[in-house]
Design a protein around this nucleic acid. Structure first.
Lengths: 159, 159
DNA sequence: GCTTGAGCTAAAGTTAGGTTTAGAAATTAT
DNA sequence: ATAATTTCTAAACCTAACTTTAGCTCAAGC
């Protein structure tokens, strides 16, 4: 179980396409745990290339680095993930993706219902309250695309 | 065509759910053009509530503020958008949404093909090169989820 | 007319996910 | 042995989209 020589950060960078600085950053975020050689340089497992690929894929799926760290914690420490490890995580990805697709399709349907309707003063507009899941942190408007029913009835007063 | 009194920023904030600071920020980004009253305070058209709602919706569709500014420039200056104005922009939204849905569905299909495959050393993995459209700015890995075919054949040398 | 609330500006801070810079030390190549 | 690469750390910088803070001024209520 000797650690072998390990590979340098530049090797991982070249193999993964990530910048050296990004790999160091991932270490600060707890996504990788390299050891140091006698001269103080980082040394990685060859298998960490997969960890990096995993990170890149998970980012494409919209996961944040803390979330990805959570996934990686479920992976076995030093060894290569087994098919089971990977299948478990992939299934999580799938749920995530399905939810996002569903949200987008709902938005599209709402939009379809709205195209041509004018949306001039429509508190009942289909885009009324789209922030189902994919919404940001903010509170969001209460009356999207329109004022509240009564208060905005008057047109350009004084025109 | 006198400007009437206009409404204050706090009114827009309350009606839209946006923070006052966000509305000011949008002005700096060219999304709104309030005028000033005698005391130097911002005064807005009532119809600017709709501009704000528009901004919030467009953000949910994934557009950046510069992009939204582009949309708003196609809207009529001081008046309420007509059904035609809105339909034109909605169609743009729709294309955008369709593209995103399609990308996600492709990713899901790739993922389905990958679940259970193990992905231990798979340069031919279906997640090989997912950055079709929705990819980030980065270059992306050349061999996702695996080292290149030949070089990574050896398992934990020295174990 | 005084007090309080709303609004003003400029500048700094925030979060995520990194990159860039600078200067020093280690490693590799010749 | 020397030169050229890499790597190291710490700190500053970057973008987007805002928020917060500080110190004032304006407007509104009684």
């Amino acid at each position: 179980m000797a650690k072998s020589a390990g590979v340098a950060i530049g090797y991982l960078s070249e193999r993964s396409g990530l910048a050296v600085s990004a790999i160091r950053y991932y270490e600060t975020q707890g996504l990788l745990e390299p050891w140091r050689n006698a001269g103080g340089q980082r040394r990685f497992h060859r298998a960490d290339i997969r960890r990096l690929s995993f990170i890149m894929i998970a980012q494409q799926f919209g996961f944040s680095l803390p979330e990805i760290r959570g996934f990686l914690k479920t992976l076995p420490g030093g060894r290569t993930p087994t098919p089971e490890d990977w299948a478990r995580i992939s299934t999580g990805f799938r749920d995530h993706l399905d939810a996002r697709i569903e949200t987008l399709q709902k938005m599209r349907d709402n939009l379809d219902g709205c195209i041509g309707c004018g949306c001039l003063s429509l508190p009942k507009c289909a885009l009324y309250n789209p922030q189902d899941q994919a919404a940001k942190k903010g509170k969001g408007p209460r009356y999207l695309m329109g004022d509240s029913p009564e208060l905005d009835a008057a047109p350009e007063k004084g025109a």
